[in-house]
């Protein structure tokens, strides 16, 4: 039987597309659902030079080795999740990596459907996030280009700081409804506009 995937978003029931506005006006917070991207969990020992070299060869560029950093390259974002753990999002070179890492102890796990990303931006984006997240969002550790595994309300998120007032909030699929509603509730005070999440 031929493969035919019909994907459903875990936020489909919120009918966000119908709420999308082109001009967010004076809404302090803009929220969007990011389109689904391929995702791959990569495990290996960052203390093992041969592994790191193979990882780099498989990627075609150096993976992030500093804690809570992201390297973005040609439609692929590589998130540092831990000293032996990365998350690849976007144009994932799965086969290339598998071949490059074949001789080193590693693990590659397709987790494409595990998480979705919610975009949060606007002049009050940081205030919204500060209601739900205990991190110091103004600290250098969360400068643009950084990421952090942390808490969102009573759930978990992978926070990606895109710019001073722009974040991607990666949450597990089953928490997506909760995360969206918590964020929107927190943002109500400043005004919320749903915008297009990009292609």
């Amino acid at each position: 039987m031929a493969e035919r995937r019909i994907r459903h978003s875990p936020l489909a029931h919120l009918h966000l597309a119908a709420r999308v506005v082109v001009d967010p006006g004076d809404a302090g917070a803009r929220m969007s659902e990011r389109p689904p991207r391929a995702q791959l969990a990569v495990r290996g020992d960052s203390g093992d030079k041969a592994f790191v070299a193979a990882f780099k060869a498989g990627l075609g560029f150096s993976p992030p080795l500093a804690a809570n950093t992201v390297v973005t390259h040609d439609g692929l974002a590589v998130f540092w999740l831990g000293p032996s753990e990365w998350l690849l999002v976007g144009e994932v070179p799965g086969e290339q990596l598998a071949a490059a890492l074949a001789d080193r102890h590693h693990a590659l796990v397709d987790v494409s459907d595990s998480r979705i990303a919610i975009g949060l931006s606007g002049p009050r984006a940081r205030d919204v996030l500060a209601k739900l997240c205990p991190l110091d969002l103004a600290a250098p550790a969360l400068a643009p280009g950084r990421c952090a595994g942390t808490i969102l309300a009573r759930g978990h998120m992978l926070l990606h700081v895109l710019a001073e007032d722009s974040y991607d909030i990666h949450v597990h699929r089953s928490f997506a409804d909760y995360a969206w509603r918590m964020l929107e509730d927190a943002a109500l005070e400043y005004g919320v506009a749903v915008i297009d999440g990009g292609g």
Binding site: F175, D177, Y178
Partner: peptide, 18 residues
């Protein structure tokens, strides 16, 4: 705070929840 009603605690939903 806002942890009241439906936001009291995360309610995890499967893809077939709807």
């Amino acid at each position: 705070g806002r942890q009241v009603g439906e936001l009291l605690d995360p309610l995890r939903r499967t893809p077939m929840h709807g």
